[in-house]
């Protein structure tokens, strides 16, 4: 059943259209940067964007930082919100459930498909970012002991292997950060027959979380907000790596995924399916 859901997800033109649109913004930013040479001052704008002019190999990180606050979560919310509610709206859910596979397995298969979408999307954004970055900007041959690309935020040199390793970790971390969004989308998707309502529900949670995060009065609950540790991938480029927020971010996403999937299962396993 997982294979069926995966092939359904990636055979849909809509999936690839979403990924393509998601890549458009970083590419546009890269082209504008290349044409104008006007990088934001360091410390302003998305992380790493200021460093891209001197080293295009950092553009995957800048590209992820550009889509992370809004576009990536929107895409994940839309796809995950569609998972069950989309079938219900199209009237295909009861045929799916007529198969002897069981509802829990269908939920797991839907989840795996959404996770695959998250992973593929993040990797595609990073790969396109790398290609665009190295094509449009100087790609410095990074060697140990010199600076530029190979400098951590703490001012220490990083070897090319180390830089590549940390970039891969950052890509993985961004993918995991999106799992909470996917779990919210999937849970709401089992509550309603409208994929739009489910996606908007997930987005409402994210907007609420981002808003509360900026509010001092909400600081007691800040560590539990789903978006709290999203930008912690920046900490992977400090030296020594600051694992505190990264580890907390992973654990928090794990908790949200666990709780919401249990809730989705509790609701969906005995839900009256009428469409």
């Amino acid at each position: 059943m997982i294979g069926v859901e995966l092939s359904k997800m990636f055979r849909r033109p809509r999936t690839w259209a979403t990924i393509a649109v998601l890549n458009a913004l970083p590419v546009l930013v890269a082209v504008l940067l290349q044409l104008t040479d006007l990088a934001p001052r360091p410390g302003e704008g998305p992380p790493f964007l200021s460093a891209v002019l001197t080293n295009g190999q950092l553009f995957p990180l800048a590209a992820l930082a550009i889509v992370l606050p809004l576009f990536l979560p929107i895409a994940v919310a839309v796809v995950s919100g569609d998972a069950v509610a989309g079938e219900a709206q199209a009237g295909t859910l009861r045929y799916l459930l007529a198969r002897p596979a069981g509802r829990t397995r269908l939920l797991v298969a839907k989840l795996v498909a959404v996770l695959a979408f998250v992973l593929v999307t993040v990797v595609v954004v990073a790969v396109v970012g790398y290609l665009v970055g190295t094509l449009l900007f100087d790609a410095q041959p990074v060697t140990s002991g010199t600076s530029g690309a190979g400098t951590s935020m703490s001012g220490t040199p990083l070897t090319p292997e180390e830089l590549a390793r940390r970039t891969l970790l950052a890509i993985g971390y961004v993918a995991v950060s999106m799992l909470g969004v996917a779990a919210f989308g999937l849970f709401f998707s089992t509550l309603t027959d409208s994929p739009l309502a489910a996606a908007l529900g997930a987005l409402a949670v994210l907007v609420t979380s981002s808003l509360l995060f900026t509010l001092d009065a909400a600081s007691p609950i800040a560590p539990y907000l789903p978006t709290r540790y999203w930008l912690a991938f920046v900490d992977l480029f400090r030296d020594p790596v600051l694992w505190r927020d990264v580890v907390r971010g992973l654990a928090l996403q794990g908790v949200y995924v666990g709780v919401l999937l249990t809730a989705a299962w509790a609701n969906f396993a005995t839900k009256d399916v009428t469409s």
């Binding site: 666990g258 709780v259 249990t262 809730a263 299962w265 509790a266 609701n267 396993a269 005995t270």
Partner: peptide, 13 residues
Amino acid sequence: GRARRWSVVVALV
């Protein structure tokens, strides 16, 4: 069964 499932969720939370 539904009540049991939801009680698992509530306990977990």
